[in-house]
Design a protein around this nucleic acid. Structure first.
Lengths: 152, 152
DNA sequence: GGATAAAAAGATGCAAAAATCTATTAGTCG
DNA sequence: CGACTAATAGATTTTTGCATCTTTTTATCC
């Protein structure tokens, strides 16, 4: 609703990767299995996340994808920025072409607060927090995420 | 960002209609000219808004589209409901398939507040307010919206 | 070096959303 | 009634987003 399907995949896949192995490589296959994430498509999304420097990758045996930096330092905002772009969050909802505080569109003022709230949410939520919440949920459900590689 | 392109057209077109003639008919052509709204497409959207009983229509000379009820009684929420549906606003952002308060997805709690804020915004903003803001802006820009029909 | 394993690249397919166009229907006006 | 006007219906086209598959590149292991 506030981001695209693709972006939602990106978030979910990164959360799973983090739960599986926050410090080392995980293969796309592993990330997706047991979930309804489309593996081929996630592979493509991960490439974009590498270019955005949120992930790093390694080819060949023992390779896969890993976080480019600690999960506490990856914000939801960073992921959204890499996939959907964040321009939309600074534009006005129903804006006529040019809309700013001086030339407000209908709703400008009212929506400003909502937008700020969304932005706060995106900048203050970290991958760390999200993956922890996911781990808790999986635990409750009795699901274990497998990962071949340990540490790195 | 929180609604589709189509829905954004619907909102903008209804605002313009209201500014032009809050009490009588305006032709689709008139509503769109001077804006970047795609007239053919808006015509189609207006049909949906008639079915949703937010607009009424009249064929032939002197006809066009008019608000089905006073602008104060049309909420942003009503328009969004007619075009995009509001189901999305009660679903979770990155939810695993089934996600509710008992089986929360990562972010469930945090996003709940944001979602509530959006819903408040949608239900508390009226076409009245939006069109008034638009009128003010157009006035500042020195733009006048023409309308052939007066009253009704 | 050869076998294998994984990502990288990009071609292709498919479906939904956005946008346009044509023909029809129902009004108004003289 | 006949000319005209505007919405209605729906067929068609274009664009975009989502998803899959094939080939290539780069790495590891024996």
């Amino acid at each position: 609703m506030i981001y695209s399907t693709t972006c939602s995949y990106a978030i979910r896949a990164m959360c799973r990767l983090t739960v599986m192995n926050p410090d080392g490589y995980v293969r796309v296959q592993e990330v997706c299995e047991g979930s309804d994430l489309p593996a081929y498509f996630v592979a493509k999304i991960f490439r974009d996340l590498v270019r955005a420097e949120l992930l790093v990758s390694a080819k060949g045996r023992g390779g896969g994808f890993a976080l480019a930096r600690p999960a506490q330092k990856i914000r939801l905002y960073d992921i959204v920025e890499a996939i959907d772009g964040v321009r939309q969050y600074s534009q006005c909802v129903v804006g006529l072409a040019k809309c700013d505080d001086k030339q407000p569109c209908p709703q400008h003022e009212q929506f400003k607060a909502v937008r700020q709230r969304i932005l706060n949410y995106l900048t203050q939520t970290t991958l760390d927090q999200m993956s922890e919440a996911l781990a808790k949920k999986l635990n409750l459900l009795g699901v274990t995420l497998a990962c071949t590689v340990e540490g790195n």
